[in-house]
Each structure stands twice: as structure tokens, then as C-alpha cells.
Amino acid sequence: MKRQVPLVLCFVFGIAMIFTQFSPHSFSQGIYEEVIRWALIIGPFALVLATVTLIQTHTARIRRRTEHWQYSFVVFAGLIVMVLIGIFLKPQNPMFEWLYNNVQLPMDATMFSLLAFFIASAAYRAFRARTFEASLLLITALIVMMGNVPVGDLLSNDTASKARQWILDNPNLSARRGIILGVSLGVISQSIRIILGIERSYLGGGD
């Protein structure tokens, strides 16, 4: 019950999705559509996992009095306020939207914009032409960076944007295609292993 049934379910749903995609018969298409509906219904419940994990992590921090444990109360405060207002007043409510626009949005945008500072600092400290390969990476990055902005064209008489486009369209395309092919073969082989029950890590530990 604990391991065999999930393996069987995984196999049945996996095989069903493969075969029904190759058969235009109405019975086969009926199964295909029904499985997609099932996935649509089951999927949203997965949010329980993320929420429980977050709550457990911060509850443990408070209980163990780890460093900066007091801030876990801030996590709970933000979470509870958003959930209470959102659930009772709905997401379209102006108060919920106000919190999103003036609290969540600026923090999210700012948090990621910090990377602009760190990327500039890292570029100065670590971006070195130590080897041939590193030099290729560095030169390409500089060309693309200058080709991405109007001042690059101004300084190079329109060469920068053309060089950038050529790099993206040619050597970059080849490298990316190689990666896509490699990753996709990996995805397919892993999917086959999952369906056949060879790969079982998704079952987690325990019996």
C-alpha cells in the first residue's frame, strides 16, 4: 500500500498519457482529456506542501531560538495578514491589492535588483581572462553587453548590435541547441525510468 500502489499509479498514468497521445480514437482521447482534468484538480492541493514546510521551518526556528529567530514572527505576521484579508475579502479587494502593490511588489523587485550591484562587483573582482576559454566568455559577454545598449552602437558605428546579433544567432545558438538536445534526452530517459519504477526518489524515505 505504501510503496507499491504509488508505483502502480505512476505507471498507469504515465503509460496512459503516452498511448493516448498517439491514438486519435474517441475513447483514447476521452481518457487523455479526463487525465488532464484530474491533474488540474489534484495540482492545486500541492500548495499545502509549500505552506506546511514554511510554517514548520519558522516554528522550529522560534522553538529552538536560532539566530534572528524573532524575525520568524515577521514571516508569520505577513503571511497571516495576507491570508486573512485575501481569503475573507477576495484577491480583487483594494486592500489586498494595496498590500501587494506597496509591500510585496517593491520588496520582490528590489530584492532581485540587488543582483545588479553584486554582478558589477563580481565582474570587477572575478571576471578574468586567465585561460583561452575564460577569455572567450569574457569577450563575448562584453560584446553582448555593448550590443544590448544604444551607446554601444554610438561608439562602434552600429557594429556592436550587429556583432551581438550574430553571436546570438550562430555560436550561441549551436551551444544552446547542444544543451537542449542533451537535457531533453536526459528528461526523456528519466521519465521512462520514473514510469517503469526504476527511479523512485519521489516516494521519499521510509517504508
Binding site: G43, L47, T51, G78, L79, G86, P91, M111
Partner: peptide, 27 residues
């Protein structure tokens, strides 16, 4: 403070939207 508030508010927003735009229509 901002970092932790961000985590809480984001997850809270995610829960509300997942409920109203996921659990409600599908379940």
C-alpha cells in the same frame, strides 16, 4: 525585517491566489 516580511507576504499572496484561482474552481 524586510526580507522576512517579503517571505511571509509572498507565501500569503500565493496561498490566497491558489485557493481562489485553483482550489475554488477545480475542487
Amino acid at each position: 525585517f524586510a526580507e522576512h516580511l517579503f517571505v511571509g507576504v509572498s507565501v500569503g499572496y500565493g496561498i490566497v491566489l491558489s485557493v481562489y484561482q485553483g482550489l475554488v474552481p477545480f475542487a
